[in-house]
């Protein structure tokens, strides 16, 4: 089902994607039939608790993990059907930024070489051209190329390492970037710097982003639309403002209630959530949220709720959505 307005052109269209992991003789149902679209020039935020399958979905979109079934259409072409050279060509257009900036940089290589690496892999042979590109992107992320290019990762703070990772992801001029928890490991003061930088880069380079995080306020700060995941399935997707103002899925409502607000006049809601997420090895039948949902009844365990439009542009997968 198309979740975008008619005027929006989907750059990415994920259709009924299923991704599983084998674990001994068991199966981890990490992503179980997720469909979503990202319009050209838009940022789609993806939120959900640890282990709900956000990174798996992001990696499957980029074909770093192959899906069991379903399709990933990028600019109209099905990435899941691509192999070899065709896939390699396509990969230049899509990039990934990780959560742990320090661990994702090779400690023995100089910053200039780290940022140039994608260019080498992509076959850019001209060293002067590579150097020009590296300087351009390092400058764009707010680092002085002459000062940093010759240094090693350990000489930089977490925030600076994330700037370097962002520079590396931009060097091939991609159209689409999956940002997997890019600020979760950073301090509050540095986090704001990096979020602002991502917004700036998006405007400057005309990027489309899939922005993964577990912090709802962080996601809202940068996203046009937000998708909420729970235990491998999509619960709700819709325009950011609307979704936060009027959540339709009980799980979205619960997430919003649980956020600690930096205002002493807002009393924290007493234990909103009961219990913890079940294991993705044996997910509950019917609605996967039913073991923690205050509204659950017979129908919820018998029947998987389909994603339905509950308000213009807002879709929820629930038999009894919040009014």
């Amino acid at each position: 089902m198309m979740q975008l307005a008619v005027r929006d052109e989907p750059l990415l269209n994920v259709d009924n994607l299923v991704v599983e992991y084998g674990l001994g003789n068991k199966t981890v149902h990490a992503v179980s039939g997720v469909s979503l679209q990202v319009a050209r020039g838009e940022t789609l935020g993806l939120v959900g608790e640890s282990g709900c399958g956000k990174s798996t979905l992001g990696r499957a979109v980029l074909q770093l993990r192959r899906a069991k079934s379903g399709r990933v259409l990028f600019d109209g072409e099905d990435l899941t059907a691509m192999e070899g050279e065709a896939l390699r060509k396509m990969r230049r257009r899509v990039q990934l930024i990780f959560q742990d900036p320090i661990a994702s940089l090779n400690p023995r290589r100089r910053i200039g070489d780290i940022v140039a690496e994608p260019l080498i892999i992509a076959g850019v042979k001209d060293a002067t051209e590579r150097k020009r590109r590296v300087h351009e992107v390092l400058g764009a992320v707010g680092l002085d190329p002459d000062l940093v290019a010759g240094r090693l990762p350990h000489e930089f703070s977490g925030g600076q390492c994330q700037r370097i990772c962002i520079a590396r992801s931009l060097v091939l001029n991609p159209e689409f970037i999956v940002c997997d928890e890019p600020v979760s490991a950073l301090d509050v003061s540095i986090r704001a710097q990096i979020l602002n930088l991502l917004e700036e880069m998006k405007a400057r380079f005309g990027l489309t982003l899939l922005f993964i995080a577990h912090d709802l306020a962080v996601v809202k700060a940068v996203s046009d639309r937000v998708a909420v995941m729970y235990l491998g399935r999509l619960c709700e997707v819709g325009p950011s403002e609307q979704l936060f103002a009027k959540p339709a899925h009980p799980y979205t409502g619960l997430l919003l209630q649980a956020i600690p607000v930096p205002d002493p006049d807002v009393r924290p809601a007493e234990s909103v959530a009961t219990g913890e997420p079940p294991s993705p090895i044996a997910p509950p039948s019917g609605c996967r949220f039913r073991t923690r949902c205050p509204r659950a009844d017979q129908r919820c365990s018998a029947e998987i709720p389909e994603l339905r439009e509950v308000a213009p542009g807002q879709f929820a997968a629930c038999h009894y959505p919040l009014a």
Partner: peptide, 23 residues
């Protein structure tokens, strides 16, 4: 500065955050 730098739920998307420069 610390309080201002935190993204707030009631703020509209794409509002630049008042970041603390440096470290």
């Amino acid at each position: 500065a610390l309080l201002a730098a935190i993204p707030k739920l009631e703020t509209a998307p794409h509002t630049p955050l008042p970041a603390i420069s440096g470290r």
